[in-house]
Simulated scan of single mutants.
Amino acid sequence: MSEEVQEEKKSGGKGLIIVLLVVVILLLVGIGVMAFLLLSGDKSGDNGSADTGLHGSAEHGSENGHADENSHAKEYSPKYKQFEPPAPESPPTYFTMEKFVVNFNGNGQAKFLAVDLKFMSYYPQVVGDAGEMEPLRPILKNDIERLLRNQSYNELSKADGPDKLRAEILDVTRKVLENHNIYPGLLEDVFMTRFVMQ
């Protein structure tokens, strides 16, 4: 009887050792598979960034697909016209609109509003002399004049009035660009080089 008990203890000990060995082997295999996936994932990430670098002009980004901090290049949808991204050190380019002089709601204080505008972008293809905005000049003039005519002296005479007007002019201009298949974010800002209410 004592021999049967000893055999059961021996076989039970062997079973436990076998189970522990199987668990350890499975853990090692799992760690190996995970390490392989992580390492092969990094390599495919490198290949993906190399592909993006090859098509950098379409993606408007640096080698990793994201715009470099020092770069003025923009990433945008391929549904818009694509332009070569500017060099990181390139200066901004400006598109000048002729003087706007409009009647507006002066509330007895002023009747005329005169504004000169310069639009800024790092993409000369958009704002340069032969850029995309040049053929849109009549549309821009019409839409901006309409916006200016709808202003009121009370709003414009506030401390932040001219800044709000600049933001509205930028919005109107970006909508015109978007309607003509140009990514609106390529237009960075607009500056009023003259702002007179008389």
Rank of each mutant, 00 (worst) to 15 (best):
K74Q: 14
M97D: 02
F95S: 03
K164P: 02
P138V: 06
M133R: 04
E59P: 00
L37C: 14
R146H: 05
N103H: 13
F104Y: 15
L147H: 00
A110E: 11
F95T: 03
D163G: 12
A130W: 09
P86Y: 03
M97S: 05
F100L: 07
Y80I: 13
E59W: 03
E84G: 02
E98D: 14
K74A: 14
D46C: 00
P138M: 05
K111M: 03
G41F: 15
F112D: 03
E168N: 07
E89H: 14
L147W: 03
G108P: 11
L165N: 04
R149M: 09
P135M: 05
Y123L: 04
F95N: 04
K141W: 05
T96K: 12
H72M: 13
F100P: 05
E134P: 01
V127E: 04
V127Q: 08
F83M: 08
D160A: 09
G48M: 04
L147C: 01
V127Y: 05
L156F: 04
S62R: 07
S57G: 00
F83V: 07
N70Y: 10
G161Y: 03
D42I: 15
M120P: 01
M97R: 01
K74S: 11
S121N: 01
K118C: 02
G48L: 05
Q125I: 09
A130I: 15
D163P: 04
H55Q: 08
N107C: 12
F36W: 13
H55P: 00
A50P: 00
A110L: 06
L117P: 02
S152G: 09
S44I: 15
E69F: 13
I144G: 00
D42V: 15
E98N: 09
N103Q: 13
E75S: 15
G108S: 12
H66W: 14
Y153G: 09
E63V: 12
E168T: 03
D129C: 05
G128R: 10
P91S: 15
E145K: 01
K118A: 10
S40K: 15
K99D: 11
L38E: 14
Y94L: 13
N154Y: 11
Y76P: 10
D51K: 10
I144L: 02
L148C: 03
L117G: 05
S62P: 02
G131F: 02
S44Q: 12
S157I: 09
G41W: 15
P88L: 10
G48A: 02
E89S: 15
E134K: 12
G108K: 12
N154S: 14
E168Y: 00
T52F: 01
T96M: 08
F100H: 06
L39F: 15
E145W: 01
A87K: 14
G56P: 01
G161V: 05
I139W: 01
R149I: 08
Y76E: 11
